[in-house]
């Protein structure tokens, strides 16, 4: 971790009560800042919050929102819920995978894109649904997939 990363980390620790109860919020803040949970950050978290490292690691691997691997600037999530599945989520995923040259769960080498699968985003009426970071796209057409991903 660089010095600036350490400063960012210190800021996160200072914004939260430094007790075991802050574990999840601290992990969320770290994930927001770095887009994943760097190992050094987890070790530091254990030390600062006075939580055993095994418990920090346990929580980090338990929740699907946390990632221990670096992720891209744009996280593209494809909904694999029942409605989206019926409406062709597979085809959207295929388009994405061939367009970005990575498989679901992977990140491009330039750290620009990550593809993730989600079980349901709760917008079944808009199926098939795809998310680019926090933005939702409904009724996605397979020929538009890459355009939506590359937009802004």
């Amino acid at each position: 971790m660089t010095q600036t990363d350490m400063t960012k980390l210190d800021k996160i620790f200072n914004n939260n009560p430094q007790s075991p109860g802050s574990l999840i919020t601290v992990l969320q803040d770290i994930q927001r800042e770095f887009r994943y949970l760097p190992r050094e950050a987890l070790e530091k978290t254990a030390e600062i919050l006075n939580v055993p490292l095994s418990k920090v690691y346990s929580a980090s691997t338990f929740y699907a929102v946390f990632s221990l691997k670096p992720r891209g600037e744009k996280i593209v999530r494809v909904c694999k819920g029942t409605a989206c599945h019926i409406k062709g989520a597979d085809i959207i995923l295929e388009q994405l995978e061939s367009g970005l040259g990575i498989k679901a769960g992977e990140t491009t080498k330039d750290l620009k894109y990550t593809i993730e699968l989600v079980n349901c985003v709760g917008a079944c009426a808009l199926a098939p649904v795809m998310l680019v970071n926090e933005k939702y796209y409904g009724n996605v057409r397979c020929d538009r997939v890459m355009k939506l991903v590359e937009k802004d």
């Binding site: 987890l42 055993p52 095994s54 418990k55 920090v56 690691y57 691997t61 338990f62 699907a64």
Partner: peptide
């Protein structure tokens, strides 16, 4: 607390960090 459950569901194992 040297070991803990890691991952979730059917992937879960007891392992060190």
């Amino acid at each position: 607390s040297a070991i803990s459950p890691v991952m979730r569901g059917h992937e879960k194992v007891i392992a060190p960090p």
